[in-house]
Lab assay of single mutants.
Amino acid sequence: MRVFPVYAPKLIVKHARIFLTGVIWVKDLGRLEFEKGRFLLPRKSLPKVKQAILELNELIEAQN
């Protein structure tokens, strides 16, 4: 598990694309899981977490 002390979308996306499957922890967002290079949306999450995951997945799609 990698810990990101700040929310840096480009760096987080780079990590997810390299490792494809895993878990990261982002300060103020908490634990985020990714599989096959995409972030998974938890069943229950705060609106800011949901927005961050959608933003990260959009960045991943834009890079493909």
Rank of each mutant, 00 (worst) to 15 (best):
A62Q: 14
V3W: 14
L46S: 14
R31V: 05
P9R: 03
H15N: 01
A52K: 11
E55V: 06
L40P: 08
G37F: 05
K36E: 12
V13K: 01
T21Y: 05
H15Y: 05
T21L: 05
V6Y: 13
G30S: 01
E33F: 14
M1V: 15
L11G: 06
L46E: 07
R43L: 09
D28V: 05
A8C: 14
G22D: 02
I60V: 08
R2N: 14
V23T: 12
N64L: 09
K14W: 10
I18M: 06
I24N: 00
L11H: 08
P42Q: 05
E33G: 11
V26M: 01
F39N: 04
K44Q: 06
L29G: 00
F39S: 09
P47Q: 13
Q63Y: 08
L32K: 00
L56I: 04
P5C: 15
L29M: 09
V23S: 08
I24D: 00
E58K: 09
L59H: 06
V23Q: 14
Y7M: 03
V23Y: 13
P47K: 13
E61M: 10
A52P: 00
I53K: 00
A16L: 05
N57K: 02
K10M: 13
A62G: 09
R38G: 06
V49I: 15
K10C: 14
P5V: 13
I53C: 09
R38D: 03
T21D: 09
I18D: 10
V6Q: 05
R31L: 05
D28A: 14
N64K: 10
E35D: 12
V26I: 09
E35G: 06
E58D: 08
L40W: 05
T21W: 06
I12H: 01
K27D: 15
I24W: 01
A52M: 05
P42I: 05
L56M: 08
E55R: 05
Q63L: 10
A52T: 06
I53F: 03
Y7R: 01
N64M: 10
K27R: 04
I53S: 03
H15F: 08
P42S: 08
P5R: 14
L32E: 02
L20I: 10
D28I: 05
L32C: 02
V26P: 01
I53A: 07
M1K: 14
K10A: 13
K44A: 06
R38T: 09
R17E: 12
V13M: 07
F39C: 03
L40I: 08
R38S: 08
I24V: 05
N57Q: 03
A16R: 00
L41F: 08
A52W: 02
V3P: 07
W25M: 11
S45C: 12
L54Q: 06
P9H: 01
